[in-house]
Design a protein around this nucleic acid. Sequence first.
RNA 1: GGCCUGAUGGCGGAGUGGUGACGCAGCGGACUGCAAAUCCGUGCACCCGAGUUCGAUUCUCGGUCAGGCCUCCA
Length: 465
Amino acid sequence: MPLSLYDTLARAKRPFVPADPARVTMYVCGPTVYNFAHIGNARPVVVFDVLFRLLRQTFGEGAVLYAANVTDVDDKINRKAAEEGVSIDIITDRYLAAYNADMDELGALRPTFQPRATRTMDAIIALIGRLVDNGSAYAAEGHVLFDTQACEDYGVLSGHPMDDMIAGARVEVAPYKRHPADFVLWKPSKPGEPVWGSPFGPGRPGWHIECTAMIEQSLGLPIDIHGGGIDLLFPHHENERAQGVCAHGQGTDGDRTYARYWMHNGFLNFGEEKMSKSLGNVALVNDLVKSTPGEALRWALLVGHYRAPLEWTGELIAQSVKALDRLYGALRRSAGVEAADTGPDPAFLAALEDDLNTPAAMAELFGLATALETATGPGRRGAKGRLLASARLMGFLFGDPEAWFQGGADDAFRSQIDSLVASRAEARANRDWPAADRIRDELAILNVEVMDNASGATWRLKERT
RNA sequence: GGCCUGAUGGCGGAGUGGUGACGCAGCGGACUGCAAAUCCGUGCACCCGAGUUCGAUUCUCGGUCAGGCCUCCA
């Protein structure tokens, strides 16, 4: 079954055909690194990581180039740097490292490229120059502005008609703009802010132009897939597209393609308990991973379809842990079975290929787990292979099943439990049920649950610590 | 005001013009010394109204409700 993806520009699901199957390109808007990432920041990362893995499976690992940028010059970064009295590099390096570590915890593969705005400055300035030269941008009072009126199809991506953008504008329009929708490509730096020299005067780039330049430099235009959160559709992606298209397509071959497929993930909401920094309940990935395995957080982010909004709740996390208990349980009970070298299950693959239907794919995973539990003899090898290959395509079940159930227990605790379990086994062998039950009660107090089976007993931590 | 989504069983969440999603929780059974885990079985779910149709949760229209975006939040 061929891969099909929902394209925001076409407003329809379309079969995915890359321009060059030997060089499939994908770009996703990355973080502004001025603080720790919260779980909402992680949603696009995990969603597009699944797509990255699926594309690698389909076209070959070496054939897929994935770039996710880092915005490392920005008002919030400047403010933070000023607060701490350090240069912005100190801030951005610190939070970029934390960001990458957090995304690693969520099982996201590192992108092929992670371009940074401050290291793309030449390309940004060159791109602005090209826009000015061909009449798509103009200078005014130290700024360079994109001329939306000069871009014939500005607004097609987001579907925002020009007139409404004037009527609905919430922010006071700067007097030097020719049109209210015009946006900044280059602006003067305020005193104390980082500054770069340019033909337009000293200053720093606007946000949108950074992405366009980074795409061009790391992947080349046009790209196959452009991803990001739905909140970025307007104005960010609209503006990115306008810049890219007007810098290249206009007046030459008439090609107005910037990205061949536009994909947007839905917003993540924080249920009834509003997320608030003052309440101290901001769901930072960095904090969440202290009490919940990153793999379970990843599961929670994929429980709903990527285009639907997702409510982030404690219940969602708890159910995600249980879902993985089920899958790791099947692996644990088949620990002695060598997994056959099968590919992913066809029905599972078909679910992912249908515009990343992760809920349907997860349903197939449960089916594969049941198949493994019920298979007998040689059939178990194939069943285990299919479960592992499928789950791993989505970034799950790379861990050791024992570690999953006993994670967080240190060696001393582990040997204490093992010896209690051994004494209980002895009591059971002697059919001394009261003694066996007494030991089980002791284990329960230690937050441990024992599970007897034909070959002995296993145990797990009841509550994760 | 403009643009755009969504409304499915106790909860989460797919999907479909006529049969079963799936997971959690519940109930019954098997297995077990008892548990747990696992397995088997079970649940008269598709916002309202009209239309199309032999038949609509699924298509069309209207309504109600909820949510998002509208210049730099993924």
